[in-house]
Design a binder for these strands. Structure first.
Length: 415
DNA sequence: AGACCTCTCGCGAGGAGCCT
DNA sequence: AGGCTCCTCGCGAGAGGTCT
């Protein structure tokens, strides 16, 4: 039976003097204050462990940091746990363990684990790009924070300066990457939910800026300027090659002699060099073959068709064409990538099958179902299209407008 | 010499257990 | 249940050793 104990008063506890030996003051129901010879006063709760019924005690902290009423609240909590057959100490340990674990999982640490998984599905360079963006914009403010303590408002405030600078695309990517880390920590059981899933809506979406380009009508002027421009022959040929083949700057500048199938009159860009990671074949037109003939004495003995100016063992830098176009006075009006847009516009205006045009541009079909059924690359249908386009460029070079060309006077080459 | 690391040791909070 | 005493272990100060 519980003994009848008179509850302690503040004065009793406050005035309790240390003695040579430790002594205790009881408040009842297992709660007592241990007064130590050093003068420190510690709240202890004495109880029987559930099941084993072994006597033990747990500390509730020191007086005056923990007041009498605090200690009584803690006693009530402990008694409630005991009623449910939960050992208050084990419960407390579990809670501290949980808290400790939470504190250990900082945003930076979890990001590292996430990156270990992520890096297997992305290229090395992209993985580096992701990590660098975290190092620059996220880790300085949020890296050391436990991931469980991360709030939307704090994360948004961290990204605000980047948005204010106008780097909305960076903000969008950071939001997306941070969310990948958060989802990872949910899936691995570090946190229960992701409070950051909507942070992107706190920012303006980046406005897509289409790469500047000229209209097909302006092509003759461009070709004239190109022919008069003070640029190296290799760069000139590269720009023309890019224009004729409708390839992306990186795909055309790194073209290798080994990728040319002379027999089938086709240039085969291997999958790993394509943006879409799918092999891309381009039917060669007489105009393209002519460009290769010009380059042969220059680089025929080398790996790359358009070797770099400084080190001919390397391909021309993909920015070289852009720099040349800029110097030609087309800054803000045309970039190397825009050459593809001219082709697309001209071919669509001419009424060619849009699917064939898309295939020529090696655009991946946005429609997944259509993509699944539409595996053909229209290689043979593309030959006349490419020839028409090459003729069109040639006409532009002679200063003719597109009206003088029609699909009737096509010359189909290859088999 | 100063910086940095490792080890030792005392203190004290909290836990264990016997006595009444 | 309450009282009493002793034990354990983590922590931090500081001594001492090692590296640059």
């Amino acid at each position: 039976m519980a003994r009848n104990v008179k509850p302690l008063t503040f004065t009793e506890v406050n005035k309790a003097k240390p003695r040579e030996k430790e002594y205790t003051l009881s408040d009842g129901q297992g709660l007592m204050l241990s007064v130590r010879p050093s003068g420190s006063k510690v709240w202890l709760f004495k109880y029987q462990k559930p099941y084993t019924k072994k006597r033990t005690n747990i500390s509730f902290g020191s007086f005056p940091e923990i007041s009498i009423s605090d200690a009584r609240k803690l006693r009530l909590e402990a008694l409630t746990l005991l009623a449910k057959l939960i050992d208050p100490r084990e419960h407390k340990e579990q809670q501290t363990q949980g808290k400790l674990a939470e504190l250990e999982y900082t945003f930076e640490k979890v990001s590292e684990s996430w990156m270990a998984v992520k890096s297997s599905t992305v290229s090395e360079n992209y993985a580096k790009d992701i990590w660098r963006s975290f190092e620059l914009h996220v880790f300085p403010k949020l890296g050391k924070l436990p991931i469980s303590k991360l709030t939307a408002i704090e994360t948004i405030n961290t990204l605000k300066p980047i948005a204010a600078k106008g780097s909305l695309e960076t903000v969008k990517r950071l939001c997306q990457r941070i969310n990948e880390v958060m989802d990872f920590s949910v899936n691995t059981g570090i946190v229960n939910s992701n409070p950051l899933s909507k942070i992107h809506s706190a920012f303006h979406a980046p406005k897509k800026k289409n790469m500047p380009t000229i209209t097909p009508e302006e092509l003759p002027q461009f070709m004239t300027t190109l022919s008069r421009a003070s640029i190296k022959l290799t760069t000139r040929c590269l720009i023309e090659w890019q224009l004729h083949t409708m390839t992306r700057p990186n795909e055309s500048s790194s073209a290798r002699w080994s990728e040319i199938d002379w027999g089938k009159s086709t240039w085969i860009v291997p999958a790993e060099r394509m943006k879409s990671r799918r092999e891309h074949s381009i039917p060669l037109t007489p105009q393209m073959l002519e460009l290769l003939n010009i380059m042969k004495p220059i680089s025929g003995h080398r790996e790359f068709i358009f070797p770099a100016d400084r080190d001919p063992r390397k391909p021309t830098n993909s920015q070289t064409a852009n720099a040349a176009i800029k110097r030609m006075g087309y800054q803000g009006k045309l970039v190397s990538h825009g050459l593809r847009a001219i082709a697309s516009t001209a071919l669509n205006e001419q009424g060619f099958n849009p699917d064939v045009i898309e295939a020529a541009l090696s655009h991946v079909d946005g429609n997944e179902v259509r993509r699944a059924y539409n595996r053909t690359d229209y290689l043979e249908q593309r030959r006349p299209v490419m020839c028409w386009w090459s003729e069109y460029i040639e006409a532009a070079t002679r200063g003719l407008s597109n009206n003088t060309l029609s699909t009737r006077n096509l010359r189909v080459i290859g088999d």
